[in-house]
Amino acid sequence: MASVDWNALAAKSRRSRRWKNGLLIGFLTLVSVPILLPFFWMVVISVTARTGGVEAAVLWLACAVLVPATCAYGAAHLALPHPRARIIAGGVIAAAAALGLWALVGDQLHLHNYRFLVNSNLVEDIRGAATAGGQFPWVWTAFGNSLLVASVSTALKVIVATLAGYYLSRFAFRGRSGFLQGLLILEVFHPWMLTIPIFLVIYWVGLLNTLTGPILVLTAIDLPFFIFIMKGFFDAVPWDIEMSAMTDGASRRQAFRMVVLPQVRAGLIAIAVLGFIKGWEEYVFVTALRTGNSYWVMSTYLYYVAEDVMGVDYGLVAAVSVFYMIPSLALYLWCQRYLTQMTMGGVKG
């Protein structure tokens, strides 16, 4: 075999590795900017805008501080292999960025736009009492309703989907394959497709203009998908442990409760988080299932704030948006790793 220039190969490999990672990070950063920038802008507006005016300069000043800070941390992360050193570097850079922000835009910051949280008569204050006539609620009313819709529908979804998923995964019964195939067809029926007939059914049952309507509908529309997710998780639980629980003296229901259910905790958390975020953000059905303004939830509140009440008061609209976004975003960031597991369970159905 001819002699190989190992040194040249090593240099080539070092170069190509550095290039590859650099290119990937550069590309991903570039495509992520259009996603991040609008969200960041919204937050900036909510804490700086005064009586309608939007200070574009603030956004770019903030970017001028945060972009170098992020780059500096990236460089520090690469240069410092030790986790302790990385944390210290991160802390120093964060402090420097905070100082920079304070120096550049500190005098612009205020929380006046968040006054809707404490002022129950926002519309009257802005437009004069005559126009809205007290129809427009305090934000906490909408918040409470959204919380109610999201949490009750989530609880229902999780319970119903878990029971059905377990039964379909583990029990033999006549018509099982037919049921599963039917469920697969129902999964295809995207909920929005059925908005009109669902509205009619709810109307005939007499649940129009009540919160029960959206709660029940939200529960039903995600059900086929969630049942398949849970079935996937149950399928992955080894039969051995269930069989040994039964030989140890448990009935099937006891085995389900005490042995199998703890094994699918990740699945339960995943569908709970997903279900809650869905219920929290719901707009189509909450508007379709009410006539007039019989109930308010956060999505209709924000829509109304943005479209009708004070379309030009950007600061206030942004503040409501930020307030509306925080719960679902916090939940998402907190439970992110469960959500990625869910897709695996879901797709393999």
Partner: peptide
């Protein structure tokens, strides 16, 4: 390998 340092040579090479 045969006396030459190959720590950073890629698997494919």
């Amino acid at each position: 390998f045969d006396g030459a340092r190959i720590n950073e040579v890629e698997a494919r090479d």
